[in-house]
Nucleic acid binder design. Structure first.
Length: 329
DNA sequence: AAGTCACTCAACCGCAGGACG
DNA sequence: GCGTCCTGCGGTTGAGTGACT
């Protein structure tokens, strides 16, 4: 069952494109324009899948594409965008004229991610690794491994080893925290662009990883120490996970800054403007949906985490009713 | 010189959503 | 409402290439 293939894959050519094939695409598009890609291979005399033709055009042949290397400004913008919206490469690419989502994605995976890790910055949360591990320890109670890691990290003189250990730490976390998967798969969760440090300290590559580890430049203040959710049946041995509902809120880059910062205590402005132009429909679940869930008889204890969120959701909606008007979630 | 490894990036894959009949 | 087609998207793969042993 499932979706039928877009074309007869046994009869279409795959792999790298030749100059002749490129010329056929260019000639066809010059006359007929783009669109209806499924017909283009036949009309242009190409033995390729239409999807492949479209990809070749959008990622390589488009006349407005840049083919030179990324500038430091572009790299910094990618990092800041990734910090806010995560791996939505098409949205990020739209902020970089002449770059495709594939370009941005490849550049991130091959260069920027490694560069951040080398600096001791977690590429998912954009926080210092030591802090991520500390938060991980607070949540999971796996204190020893993170402390050992940070200790080794500090004393390791080799950059390569630092990268290796950073990677291995991440593997350790990923492999042991399936129930915390959303933490690592959702870069929005612990990335708060409304926080004072985000507003006032644009990211620079000159950051010193040692300072980060020593805490001297680690301006990200963890909120995980404020325990508003109590777990009455916690055992005495296991460390109590300490977090509050706001730790799990998605920060919304689309909201007007002054709305977001109410109650946060910051009035600084972000140097990013792209978020205001983007439609982040997939970011957040509809508040009305959530309300519906609550009203549909789903049973939670009064102290459950979900109820905490739903209650807070209602509270926010009452404070910012324009939320539902502005976005079609 | 030959083999191995690491890296880059073009291309592929599968899924999701919108448009349309 | 349903099925089909088309397009967009993000994750992944693998060929090509240079560095290293």
């Amino acid at each position: 069952m499932g979706r039928p293939p877009c074309c007869d894959k046994s009869n279409v050519k795959k792999g790298l494109w030749t100059a002749e094939e490129d010329a056929k695409i260019l000639a066809y598009v010059a006359i007929h324009g783009v669109g209806n890609w499924s017909l283009i291979p036949k009309k242009a005399g190409l033995n390729r899948c239409g999807k492949s033709c479209r990809l070749r055009w959008t990622n390589y042949l488009r006349p407005d594409l840049k083919h030179d290397s990324f500038s430091p400004q572009e790299e910094e913008l990618i990092i800041q965008c990734h910090r806010i919206i995560g791996s939505r490469w098409s949205s990020i690419a739209r902020q970089l004229p002449g770059r495709t989502d594939n370009d941005v994605k490849n550049h991130w995976n091959t260069k920027l991610k490694k560069r951040l890790m080398k600096m001791g910055i977690d590429p998912v949360t954009h926080k210092p690794v030591s802090q991520v591990l500390s938060e991980f320890r607070n949540i999971s109670g796996h204190g020893n491994s993170s402390e050992t890691f940070v200790r080794n990290f500090k004393t390791e003189p080799s950059n390569n080893s630092i990268v290796t250990q950073t990677n291995s730490a991440w593997e350790m976390i990923r492999n042991t925290t399936s129930h915390h998967e959303s933490y690592y798969n959702s870069p929005m969760i612990f990335t708060n662009p409304t926080s004072p440090e985000f507003q006032t300290t644009p990211f620079h590559f000159s950051s010193n990883s040692n300072n980060l580890l020593n805490g001297t430049t680690s301006s990200c203040s963890s909120t995980s120490s404020s325990a508003s959710i109590t777990q009455p049946n916690q055992g005495a041995q296991a460390p109590v996970p300490t977090f509050c509902w706001s730790d799990f809120l998605l920060s919304d880059p689309v909201l007007p800054l002054n709305s977001q910062t109410q109650g946060v205590g910051s009035s600084a402005t972000s140097n990013l403007t792209f978020a205001q132009n983007e439609n982040f429909n997939s970011q957040a679940e509809s508040s009305s949906q959530k309300t519906a869930y609550k009203a549909s008889g789903t049973s939670h204890s009064a102290s459950s985490f979900v109820d905490e969120i739903l209650d807070k959701d209602q509270e926010m909606l009452s404070q910012f009713p324009q939320l539902l008007n502005d976005f079609d979630y």
